[in-house]
Write a protein that binds this DNA or RNA. Structure first.
Lengths: 243, 243
DNA sequence: AATATAATACTTGTATACAAGTATACTAGA
DNA sequence: TCTAGTATACTTGTATACAAGTATTATATT
């Protein structure tokens, strides 16, 4: 709650977003943070009242979240699925899959521009760390990987990324906020990993790429998971959406 | 145009579908068949008038098609992207990617039930061929691969499949209708390929799986492409959506 | 007390209305 | 003839209204 206005999603990322997008982003954060527990049944009317909007943007938001697999639209009400450890592992399965695919394509193209772009983003990440800006860091982290994926110009791989991105973003956002408070020293390792990633692209070194990718994910999965679980445990039962 | 009612999508597959789903399915078919050319700008109001429904289901349909990458929602109007050869190749890249991933998981589990299910579907496909039912054949073909994917119980791989499926289904549907008319003999080879696929799963033979998968895709991509292109050429300029 | 039936309070999907914004066309002035 | 400004006909996003269907609850009957 960096914003201290009750919203989990950074409001400055929503400058030009529609009400539907705002609702989906905020709802996603609440679901992934565990504030809205898995199993909860969401009602369109109730959500409309809570967010002070009509049912139209709410319906839009629910459709989006359903396509991301964090809720399930049933005949009566939307059932929250959320992110268990299983789902988080699965997301990283997919990321590993697509980033490996992308790397195979990248070694075949000119990477000068890409390297420059990635270096810039890395600098941004360092600044974000320096000023303890978890949100900005998360943004740049996601952008880093998206930039790599975009470089190969594959519309259907990009489609997968776009489907995965919102959930990834929320997850990373929450993880990073936590870590900025509790495990600040982690970030030097994350930066190191991203530097390795750039180097792997530069030298077209498959093994190095695979290593940095796995390290990166293991890092997030292993270490962060713990924090994650405790955070979810903490939030258990604090907020009740339904009654 | 098996239905001879002006609709391309099989109406019996829409028994319990909402108006939004109906519109998205029909629009998808028209886009992929080339009846609506790429570059066309779709207007919500015009579509609502054409389909004799309100804007609500139309908006829903456009959101779906946008998430499938066959249209692009812009500030004013939805621009049709369609399926060029590039996109079709990309779709098969992704299918190859996920089906390979799935196979790695499958070899680790008990496949008895799956094999039985696949055999049943294969029988269905044979019957569909016997009675020259292109739509039914397409349905079973898609179901065959979906069944394999579902077997590993991976929600995010399934998510990718679900995102890809409608476009795949439309594409296969159109291809098969064409082939039933013009290249009936192809189907013995398709059946053969699927039998190989089942065998690969049964014997957990990676190479065989890879072979049957590639053959299957090459078949569709190489041979069907030609038909495809000619079909698209044929439909060029026949129907004008905008004027 | 248990069960069948009816009333109610929900639900979703669709239609319609409206506000705010944007492109197009048209007119007025030089 | 060309440009500036204005009117108009679009566009999207949101709110609201309504119909049809489904749980739930209460009531009546045995």
């Amino acid at each position: 709650m960096t914003e201290s206005n009750g919203f989990l999603y950074p409001s400055k990322w929503l400058s030009k977003a529609s009400a539907g997008d705002r609702v989906s982003c905020e709802l996603r954060m609440r679901i992934i943070s565990g504030e809205i527990e898995s199993g909860t049944i969401l009602s369109e009317n109730k959500l409309a009242a809570d967010f002070a909007v009509s049912r139209s943007p709410i319906r839009e938001a629910l459709k989006i979240l359903a396509s991301e697999n964090i809720i399930r639209l049933e005949r009566m009400g939307a059932v929250v699925i959320g992110l268990s450890e299983k789902e988080i592992e699965e997301i990283y399965d997919v990321r590993l899959l697509i980033e490996s695919f992308v790397f195979e394509r990248i070694v075949k193209i000119d990477t000068n521009e890409l390297i420059k772009e990635l270096s810039k983003i890395l600098e941004m990440m360092k600044v974000a760390i320096k000023y303890s800006d978890a949100d900005e860091f998360s943004y740049q982290d996601v952008l880093f990987h998206e930039t790599i994926i975009r470089a190969v110009n594959h519309s259907y791989i990009l489609m997968i990324w776009n489907n995965l991105k919102p959930v990834m973003e929320s997850f990373i956002l929450l993880s990073m906020r936590k870590r900025f408070k509790e495990k600040y020293e982690d970030f030097t390792r994350i930066i190191k990993n991203h530097e390795l990633y750039i180097e792997a692209i530069q030298t077209k070194d498959r093994d190095l790429m695979s290593k940095s990718l796995h390290d990166n994910f293991d890092d997030v999965q292993g270490k962060v998971e713990d924090l994650w679980i405790s955070q979810r445990m903490l939030s258990k039962g604090v907020v009740q959406q339904n009654d």
